[in-house]
Every structure is written in structure tokens, then in C-alpha cells.
Computed example of a mutant assay.
Amino acid sequence: MESRFLGIDELTDIPAVAVVVDVTRAFTVAAWAFARGAEKIVLAESLDEALALTSGHPDWIALKDGPPAPGFDAVNSPALLRSADLTGRTVVQKTTAGTVGALAVKEAPLVLCASFVVADATARLLRSRGCTDVTYVITGEQGRAEEDLACAQYIARRATGDGPTDPAPFLHRAATSRAATELAQGLRAGSHPDDLALCLDLDRFPFPLLATSEPPLLTLRPGPS
């Protein structure tokens, strides 16, 4: 399996398979939303689009990075979302990195969104589809986020199916990354003290996050377990 690890700005063509990685915190939050019963997640291009979508669908809920804001029902924190009842709901998500990365590759035939909490499920889907050429989109810090790169490299190793891979070095890199330090120190608005631990909770969920185009929207749903 050929694997590429690129930042959003480094994408020059439409990949055959794209795995968009955002560990802290977009796609950890997305997995938690499905665990709490959400039916689907719509990835918004902008905050204005997120608000427009929810204004047209009063039963949808909007989620964003940073502190609470008028019109938004939740923030991008897995710990703050883990007790929510989202049964049957549609979540509109807009973040500064993860959703941007997914939208950048929305034309790819297969788009998966990933973090450590769905790492094994993501690798299993890549194996089951017989994927031979995978582009991992590193969304944080202009493609240099160590937690995202560590997660992507871990998934790539697991996807080869060449035997067990020790997750400890990859989790350590993520735990000592700049983003992890900022979360641990409470420097990121809209965060919770438990967010970092939840972002590093390897394989908590058995499903991958599969993004599909439902024109004009890009929609995220849980894939097969």
C-alpha cells in the first residue's frame, strides 16, 4: 500500500482514497456524536453556512470550534459532547482544520475522516476495500501537527495488515504534541480538561467515519463496523 502524508495546502490533485485526520478535536468529536446517537454530520464550509443550514432545519444542531456563540448549540469538545442526547439528530460541524481538510478532498472516490478513537476501524475499511494508494491529509498546523501525523502513520501501518503495530510510540508523539500541550493547559477555548484523554482513547469506537457527497453537502456517517 502506497501512503502519502500531505497538508491541506499540499494537495495538488484528487486522491484515489483520502483519509482526513484531525485528532484534536474534530474527528474525535464526530465519533462521539455518532456514539451519542447522531444520524449524520454535515460538514460546513463556513460559520455562516452552518448557521444558515440550521436556520433552515430547526431540528439540526450546529457545532463549532472555540467558545460558545449565538446560534451554535455545541462546541468542538468530546468531553462536553459525551453526555448529550443526539438520537436521530443531524449535526452541522465547522472547525478550523478537520472540516476544511475533508471539504478539500470531497471529490475523491473514497473519503474517510479519522482520529485515534476510530483508528482500527479506519484501517480495517482500507484493507477491506483493497486500497493500494492512500493520501492521508494532515489537517492541523498547516500539515505539521504531530498528533495528526502520528495517527495517520499508525493507521497506515495497521492498514497494511502486516502484523501487530505497537501503538505506544504513536500515542506518545500525540500526547506530547503542541496541540496536546495546549489542551492540557486549558489554552484552547471551548475545551474541557478531559478532552485530551478522550482524543487519545485508542479504538474506542468500532466504526469508521465515511464522508459522502450528498449535493450540495458533504455528509459524514458511521461506516460498517
Rank of each mutant, 00 (worst) to 15 (best):
G66I: 10
P206C: 04
V19R: 03
P224L: 09
H192V: 09
R188F: 11
R129F: 00
Y136T: 06
A52K: 09
A152W: 02
T99G: 09
D85H: 07
T176N: 13
E214N: 10
V117I: 14
E146H: 09
A26N: 07
L198I: 02
V111Y: 04
R129P: 03
A74R: 14
E147D: 12
G130D: 05
L209F: 09
M1P: 12
L125R: 15
P78T: 01
I61K: 12
C199V: 03
G161H: 05
P222R: 07
D65N: 13
A104T: 00
A16N: 13
T176R: 07
E182R: 15
A150Y: 02
I155L: 10
L103C: 01
R204E: 08
I138M: 12
S83G: 14
L80A: 12
V92Y: 02
R178A: 13
A26E: 04
R127T: 00
L126C: 02
P222L: 03
V137Y: 03
L86F: 11
L43M: 15
R221E: 12
S83R: 13
G56Y: 03
L202K: 06
Y136P: 05
T135I: 04
A84C: 07
P206S: 12
R188V: 15
T54P: 02
D59M: 05
M1Y: 01
L209D: 10
S115Q: 10
V23P: 05
V29Q: 03
T176S: 14
S191Q: 14
T54S: 09
V134P: 11
W60H: 09
A30M: 02
P15M: 06
D133H: 15
A184C: 00
K106R: 15
P164E: 14
I8N: 07
D203W: 02
T54Q: 08
T99V: 05
F170S: 07
R158F: 00
T28F: 06
I41R: 08
F205E: 12
A50W: 01
L11A: 09
G190N: 11
L112W: 00
R188Q: 11
A211Q: 06
P215A: 15
V91K: 02
Y136K: 05
E214P: 01
A74Q: 13
P222E: 05
A69N: 00
P67E: 14
M1W: 00
A18H: 01
E214A: 14
T90I: 07
W32F: 14
V92I: 13
L149T: 10
